[in-house]
């Protein structure tokens, strides 16, 4: 990066004319380029980068291996815990199914809606309704249902 580019990146514009301080500052900055090894050694930073990458290759490989192993370990851990959990679930399911069957056998017969509705209604009234002999008068019908036959 040359000085102009660096100035642009740093958001610095040209100093006002006659501003010797700013001018000297620019000179200092320009002079500092000399301590940049890339200034006098072409390709220095490319070599620097290559050296670092070469020296860190082993560690990067170790990290890749570790990442792969950790994924395998997670999957293996899951499979290890999956088998006992599945077995326990099967036992629980078998127990629940068994108790359901016993409950069904022991339980009283279920209520039927029609029986509930027909409870405490006189047989004569039911036969009349089934036979189509229903009085047209509601009062007479209620009397028939309640067994108050005149």
């Amino acid at each position: 990066m040359n000085t102009k580019d660096r100035d642009r990146k740093a958001g610095r514009g040209s100093p006002p004319v006659g501003d010797t301080n700013a001018s000297r500052t620019r000179e200092v900055r320009a002079s500092l380029e000399i301590v940049d090894p890339g200034y006098r050694l072409p390709g220095y930073w490319e070599r620097f980068h290559a050296t670092v990458m070469e020296r860190t290759a082993f560690e990067l490989a170790r990290r890749r291996r570790l990442a792969r192993e950790s994924v395998a370990a997670v999957l293996s851990g899951w499979s290890r815990s999956l088998i006992p959990v599945a077995a326990a679930a099967a036992v629980v399911a078998a127990f629940l199914v068994g108790s359901e069957v016993r409950y069904a056998a022991d339980a009283a017969p279920p209520l039927v809606l029609e029986d509930v509705l027909a409870a405490e209604i006189e047989d004569g009234a039911l036969q009349g309704v089934v036979g189509g002999q229903v009085p047209a008068n509601p009062v007479a019908f209620m009397a028939l249902v309640e067994g108050n036959v005149p």
Partner: peptide, 13 residues
Amino acid sequence: ARAGDGESFGELV
């Protein structure tokens, strides 16, 4: 880079 990606670490360098 933590997972060993050389390209990412290279960019940091």
